[in-house]
């Protein structure tokens, strides 16, 4: 475990260094105007690169992580947006694990046409673009509103309904992934001697599935949580983007030069906030590492408990 933690720490440090090196790549912008548009051409400048990196390192040495474009500390910025995203991620993870496990139980417990269709839908959904599914879900909900369905807020991050709607959208793909993993793991247990013996004793299939198969497959399932988490982080950008949820991913996207409206007097794409990008990417990387470590610790605990 100690070696694993050291490896994770080493990888984390490497990742953060890579992020800084990428974010501060020299972009000596030259603006070119052609007919109706003005665009910037970035050229590499190694001297500028060195200067920017040394300035950033000196700033960190002085105890600051930098400021955003409005002159606010990046940490204050992070606290505001990341806390929203963390709540969203937390709720979506719970929904994904709950729905994923329930769907896997249904797929494994029953062999009829509904269970087979449910499994096919789960596998097929993973091949579809997440943003297209989210758009279709939004369209269906808006159509339901027009048919007299009780209305609730879909966009933004201030209402509970929009918050839950974003969490449900975020959990769609991870829950399908988790269901597939749990179902496969449960199936891999089938044919084991303990199951044959339990079936021989007349134990109900539902009891067998939950009390024996699921319990025995738990270490393998927990090991898959970091991958599910990666799905969740990847989908987070699309969900925050499409539901106008002002979270950490949206803020990162904004810091990268996202131009929300063409009415802005100056294009946002030239205002890339490097310190914001570095801090937010470090935040997401750290989340990934924490989930990785948590999954490893949980696997060890569950395995030890089973052996004892």
């Amino acid at each position: 475990m100690r070696i694993f933690l050291l490896q994770q720490l080493f990888l984390w440090v490497c990742m953060v260094v890579v992020v800084v090196l990428i974010a501060f790549l020299p972009r000596d912008l030259v603006f070119v105007s052609e007919e109706y548009e003005t665009y910037g051409i970035a050229t590499m400048n190694m001297q500028l690169y060195g200067e920017r990196l040394s300035e950033y390192v000196a700033m960190i040495g002085a105890g600051s992580l930098g400021e955003n474009r409005y002159g606010t500390s990046v940490l204050v910025d992070l606290h505001l947006y990341a806390s929203r995203s963390l709540q969203l991620i937390g709720i979506a993870s719970i929904i994904a694990i709950f729905i994923g496990t329930a769907k896997a139980y249904f797929d494994t417990r029953y062999k009829g046409i509904f269970a087979r269709s449910s499994r096919k839908i789960g596998q097929g959904m993973q091949a579809l673009p997440d943003f297209f599914i989210i758009i279709v879900v939004q369209m269906v909900v808006l159509w339901l509103f027009r048919q007299g369905f009780p209305q609730f807020s879909l966009y933004g991050n201030e209402d509970l309904s929009s918050f839950l709607f974003a969490a449900v959208l975020l959990s769609l793909f991870p829950s399908m992934y988790f269901a597939n993993i749990v179902a496969s793991t449960l199936e891999s247990e089938e044919g084991s001697f303990y199951l044959i013996a339990a079936k021989g004793r007349g134990v109900k299939k539902s009891v067998l599935l939950i009390k024996h198969q699921l319990a025995n497959a738990l270490p393998s399932i927990i090991q898959q949580i970091p991958i599910m988490f990666m799905y969740l982080l990847s989908n987070l950008l699309m969900v925050e983007f499409l539901t106008s949820f002002r979270g950490a991913m949206y803020r990162t996207y904004q810091a990268m030069g996202f131009q929300e409206t063409s009415l802005e007097s100056l294009p946002n794409q030239f205002y890339i906030e490097e310190p914001v990008i570095v801090v937010y990417l470090t935040f997401f990387i750290s989340l990934g590492f924490l989930v990785n470590i948590g999954s490893r610790v949980m696997t060890e605990i569950v395995t030890r408990r089973r052996l004892s």
Partner: peptide, 18 residues
């Protein structure tokens, strides 16, 4: 593999411009 893939792509594309 550990890096959130879409974020990595976005960062690189942002830096490259055009």
């Amino acid at each position: 593999l550990i890096f959130p893939f879409l974020l990595l792509v976005l960062t690189v594309v942002t830096i490259l411009q055009n």
